[in-house]
Amino acid sequence: MEFQTLSSPHSERVNSVSEVMSQVLLALLPAIIAMTYYFGWGLLIKLVLASLTALAAEAAMLWVRSRPICPALLDLSAILTAWLFALATPPLLPWWMTVLGMLFAIILVKQLYGGLGYNPFNPAMAAYVLLLISYPVEMTSWLSPRMLNEHLLGFGETLGAIFQGTLPAGLTWDSIAGATPLNEMRLQLGMNHTVSEIRQGPLWGSYGAKGWEWIGNWILLGGLWMLYKRTITWHIPASMLGSLLLVSLFFFSLDPETHPFGLFHLFSGGAMLGAFFIATDPVTASTTKRGQLIYGAAIGLIVYIIRTWGGYPDAVAFAVLLLNLAAPTIDYYTQPRVVGQGDGQHG
């Protein structure tokens, strides 16, 4: 009898890329629900719009490059990019900015470098930075969370705001907009208020800002679930949050009135999302264990530096892109000791 000859191992495989991606998407659900609860329908509309744009751009590029389309769309990586982008941008971002961001992310940052696995930069973060630099006002116009917002927009009103830029009669942008906690803190510190004075304001909750701190909790929950499912390892989230916490604690201990305490940094802006969902993007991150510790710690450090002394209130996207650039070098210098080499004799 004749048989087929495949190369070993012949075992039934235990992982697939689409499984990994769907686990990450699933882990994002608590954060998506929480954000929708606090900031309204905008996020969900953006999720759909960004996902459709990303899939269309991916399919078109694969067609142009004569690559099989279906397997690449089913790996869910384009959807993940879309979701991360949607979560990172303000709820009422004009529709064409979402489309522009996604086209840039998928076409320029991902497919032109060779598609999944070959892009040196995180597509969602590159798109975020492109828009932040080009349209700083729109990219920083957040809403006030539900407890501080008397005019939470309905579904139709949100659609109108996103697609036509119109608000319901009697409402102005100023009446619904709210500064992000990082922006607020930065602004107030700039006006020489002390941290304890600033925290007297209505915006603030128990360790971050109202609404925001709970979104941070739900992101953390999703992240912990991914750790439990071994979708990610602890190295990057722990080192990134750890370094951010340590550095902020250090400056906090030097002068608590001009430097917000550590937990504020972890639960504000993109830190939590960045630590579990963005810096852990395997394609663009460091792959060796020691390298991941360095990679994560450097991101945390740069986030703190830019937040405290830089020109932008938040810096996760910048820090991630900078370290994307350094990842291959970090990997090169942090190779593990191969068994049987060097002075690894035990016992």
């Binding site: 992982n15 696995g117 395997p282 792959t287 060796t288």
Partner: peptide
């Protein structure tokens, strides 16, 4: 499909 550099092999 393409390697996503997840490092599970390592």
């Amino acid at each position: 499909i393409a390697c996503i550099r997840c490092g599970r092999c390592a």
